[in-house]
């Protein structure tokens, strides 16, 4: 096995162009497991850990609307510490990943490219409307996270492409993420749900994990809720959501899933649990929104 260690991003792209069969390795927390199980036998490993650009994050110019650009190689522990306030949904998800050791090494780029249906990073990114910055020596492009996955463990990446970064719009409203596991830590998700309220755009984002071959948004639930909120002028004058709205939202979330039975849980349980998570997370997000609106209102009067 050959081991390539590009010193920077352009070297990495060149190496990948020259050896399209090379398998990139970032934190190695997915790849090393695959190698140990002999599920993969790459001829060449392309080690990205020396590429400084991948380990940086930045705020894009305000003109682009408050977007954070997260290098694909920023580990979860830094996402929690450094961008947790701007991206609370992603930080909540990051806190549920593995153990402290895994969070120190594991990266969002690796999580995306592994394309496990149970990748915990995916739902909050989808709920936030994030995009994946993909680059090759030829060109670069951005792909909405929801379109990045084409199947179980499959993505849109061409063989000479690498993930450079993930562009995530900064939160403008409450975000929540919940993960069901049968252990209180270090567990692969039975199912996950993310919700993000976008008061400025007056839209709602959602993300569902582990309940279909690829993570996905519950688009009908998003549209239903956004319409309800708009109709009752809830964004400006938020009141407690009627039970019927919360129930319908949960129902539409459940309708968006296509779960299976596997060692981690039954399809029936996943469906049930997602309904509960949808209701709870929306409840928490909406309460937070109402509280902040109230505070803002009071400050406005003072």
């Amino acid at each position: 096995m050959d081991f390539l260690r590009p010193a920077d991003w352009s070297e990495a792209l060149e190496a990948k162009a020259k050896h399209p069969e090379a398998t990139p390795i970032a934190g190695g927390t997915d790849l090393m497991v695959e190698l140990n199980f002999d599920h993969r036998r790459p001829e060449i490993l392309l080690d990205l850990s020396r590429v400084e650009q991948l380990r940086q994050w930045s705020r894009l110019p305000e003109a682009q609307g408050g977007v954070l650009r997260l290098g694909a190689g920023v580990p979860y522990s830094r996402l929690i510490d450094e961008v947790g306030a701007a991206l609370p949904g992603l930080a909540m998800a990051a806190r549920t990943v593995g153990s402290p050791q895994i969070r120190n090494r594991g990266t969002l780029g690796g999580n995306l490219v592994s394309a496990s249906p149970a990748g915990d990073g995916h739902p909050p990114l989808i709920a936030s409307g994030a995009e994946v910055e993909v680059e090759s020596a030829r060109a670069s492009r951005t792909v909405p996270v929801a379109e990045f996955f084409t199947g179980v463990k499959k993505t849109v990446l061409a063989e000479d492409e690498l993930v450079a970064a993930i562009r995530v719009p900064e939160a403008t409203g409450p975000q929540q993420f919940s993960k069901i596991g049968t252990r209180n830590a270090m567990v692969i998700a039975v199912c996950t749900f993310a919700v993000a309220l976008h008061p400025r755009r007056e839209t709602v984002g959602t993300g569902i994990g582990s309940a279909a071959p690829t993570p996905r948004a519950a688009s009908e639930a998003e549209e239903f809720l956004a319409a309800e909120l708009a109709e009752r002028d809830q964004w400006r004058r938020p009141t407690p959501l009627p039970e019927s709205v919360v129930d319908r939202f949960a129902e539409l979330v459940v309708n968006a899933t296509a779960p299976i039975d596997d060692v981690r849980g039954t399809a029936r349980y996943r469906t049930h649990a997602l309904g509960v998570l949808a209701r709870r997370t929306l409840g928490w997000a909406w309460e937070e929104y109402r509280n902040s609106a109230e505070t803002a209102g009071r400050q406005g009067c003072a």
């Binding site: 806190r95 549920t96 993420f177 993960k179 596991g181 209180n184 998570l277």
Partner: peptide
Amino acid sequence: LPGGASNTTHGEG
């Protein structure tokens, strides 16, 4: 709480 940092309940249920 049950679920811990996975944030599945804030006391509900």
